[in-house]
Amino acid sequence: MNLPPINIGNIDIKLAFGGFVLNVLYVKFGYFHTSMREHSHSYGSYELHYIPSGQGILVAEGKRYPLTPGTLFMTGPNVAHEQIPDHSDPMAEYCVFLEVLPGDSQPAASKYSTNKENLLSELLVNTPFWIGLDNENMMALFEMLADELSAKRIGFHHMATNILEMIITRMVRQYTKHSSSLLDVPVKTLDDSRMLTIENCFLNEYHSITLGQLADRLGLSTRQTERTVQKQYGVSFKDKKQQSRMGAAAQLLTTTDMTISAIAAEIGFATLEQFSHSFKQYHGMTATQYRSRRK
């Protein structure tokens, strides 16, 4: 299957969606050859995933779901999730990452929406997790989006915006056709570049990032940064970093043959003793016990 890649780069795309505005932070395409370790998104952040080919497993909210061609799923605020590919048939994925902004961010002409449109947007923000099989021909939309972004013909920004609106709309329409987890989620906002910086630091630099370093990158004081992390995740910087470290440790224990000492060093602990104490305190068992039970 020859799948077209998508990357919006630095293009600013905001979608009027019922009573909200969706700030599209990135659209990406790629293949999973290794697992994406367990992580979660901040308040107001949603990630749409579409699997056009390949096989794998999604672990979300403590449950395992098979990923097959045509699978769609949305992961919203504080939904811990992990993607595990089938190495004999690695899955491809289109991913749309967006931030929900309040409706007063819309231009005046865009603020008029029907009750059905408002229901659609409320269904999106009140559903932190949903998974099902596509029955709205989403692949055709991703192909159209890829064509517009690669060719960059006159009006491509307008076209890309319209196609992304259709992608989100067709996604949320399908919530009502399958069972879904409907929970109220607070919708908060943060400057998009700062939000991505925070997300990426906890996902990729959990082993070494400090509060001071993150504050410097955000252009904020350490106190402001601490408040920002608390606002976005509901926990302190220290607790969020520990959560990321322990998630990475759990993945390494179950997917590699690395020694426990090597894992401790890999995720940023100075000594094995410090790691062992933290791991047992967090997971309720030793690293050795965790590895033997999960493998």
Rank of each mutant, 00 (worst) to 15 (best):
M1H: 07
I6Q: 02
I8L: 10
N10S: 12
F17P: 06
N23V: 02
V24G: 05
Y26Q: 12
Y26T: 10
F29L: 03
Y31R: 13
H33K: 14
H33F: 14
R37N: 07
R37K: 10
H39A: 13
H41R: 04
H41M: 00
Y43M: 14
G44L: 04
S45L: 09
S45T: 09
L48D: 02
L48M: 08
L48I: 12
H49K: 02
H49Q: 07
H49C: 07
Q55L: 15
Q55M: 14
G62W: 00
K63T: 06
P69T: 02
A80I: 05
E82V: 04
I84R: 06
P85T: 10
D86V: 10
H87I: 07
S88D: 12
M91L: 15
A92I: 02
Y94E: 04
V96D: 05
F97S: 13
L98G: 00
V100T: 09
L101V: 00
G103P: 11
Y112H: 12
S113Q: 10
N115A: 15
K116E: 14
L120M: 15
S121A: 15
E122T: 05
E122W: 04
L123H: 01
V125K: 07
W130F: 14
I131V: 10
D134V: 07
E136W: 01
N137A: 12
L141I: 00
F142N: 02
M144S: 15
A146K: 01
D147E: 15
I154W: 02
G155P: 00
G155L: 06
F156R: 04
F156T: 00
M159H: 11
T161E: 12
N162Q: 13
I167V: 14
T169C: 08
Y175W: 03
H178D: 10
V185T: 13
V187R: 05
L190P: 01
M195I: 03
M195L: 14
C201G: 05
C201V: 08
L203T: 06
E205H: 13
S208I: 06
I209W: 00
T210D: 07
L211W: 02
L211Y: 01
D216K: 15
R217P: 05
G219Y: 00
L220R: 10
T222D: 09
T225A: 09
E226A: 15
E226G: 10
Q232K: 09
S236I: 01
S236Y: 04
D239T: 12
K241N: 11
S244F: 02
A249P: 07
A250M: 04
Q251I: 00
L252Q: 02
T254Y: 03
T254L: 10
T256V: 05
D257H: 11
D257S: 13
T259D: 10
I260G: 07
A262K: 13
I263P: 13
I267N: 06
A270G: 14
A270K: 15
F275A: 03
H277S: 12
H277M: 13
S278D: 15
F279E: 01
Q281S: 15
Q281T: 15
M285T: 06
T288E: 13
Y290Q: 06
Y290S: 12
R291Y: 05
S292P: 04
K295V: 07
K295S: 10
